[in-house]
């Protein structure tokens, strides 16, 4: 071997990936430059070997992973259940659009309208409705009214 081998071949040799061929070793005998490269590579590799360490994982890791996997499965199941629930509601609305219409036009509108009405009437009467003692009766009145509206809801609704 007259020309010097690629330094990467020397690297493979010191890393134990490939054994140096007899020609390479014979070349090394009389080539100072290759000996310098090899020494250089050995030194650099030995410095990098200093990065190795003895740390080991905590013993209960497998258990922790399995527990985390179980938690993920529960969350996934919950999300699946929520998705199915939403799908069912959408399906119901699609199959019977009247349900949707009833919900928004009658139930919600009526309640919101009633609350606004009471509020405006109180304003008109110039009552001190912001005084704290007003809030309790107002809330009770609102709850009772909603209950009564529900109870005496006309059959056609």
């Amino acid at each position: 071997m007259n020309s010097c081998p690629d330094p990467l071949l020397w690297q493979e040799h010191i890393d134990g990936e490939k054994t140096a061929t007899p020609e390479m070793l014979a070349h090394l005998e009389h080539c100072q430059s290759c000996r310098a490269i090899l020494a250089d590579l050995r030194e650099a590799a030995s410095l990098a070997d200093g990065l190795a360490l003895e740390a080991s994982l905590p013993g209960d890791l497998t258990g922790r992973i399995l527990a985390a996997a179980a938690r993920k499965r529960v969350v996934s199941s919950g999300m699946l259940a929520a998705a199915i629930f939403i799908l069912l509601i959408l399906a119901t609305l699609l199959l019977d659009p009247a349900v949707f219409a009833w919900l928004f036009t009658v139930v919600l509108t009526r309640r919101v309208a009633w609350i606004i009405d009471v509020f405006l009437k109180m304003l008109q009467l110039r009552q001190a409705f912001l005084a704290p003692w007003w809030w309790g009766p107002a809330l009770v009145l609102a709850v009772v009214s909603i209950y009564l509206l529900n109870k005496f809801q006309p059959a056609e609704e």
Binding site: L8, Q11, L41
Partner: peptide
């Protein structure tokens, strides 16, 4: 593979230089 060998080679030389 050749890129891996190359990066290892350069990486080691660079590590020693920076060190």
């Amino acid at each position: 593979l050749s890129l891996v060998k190359n990066r290892l080679y350069r990486g080691r030389i660079m590590l020693r230089k920076v060190y």
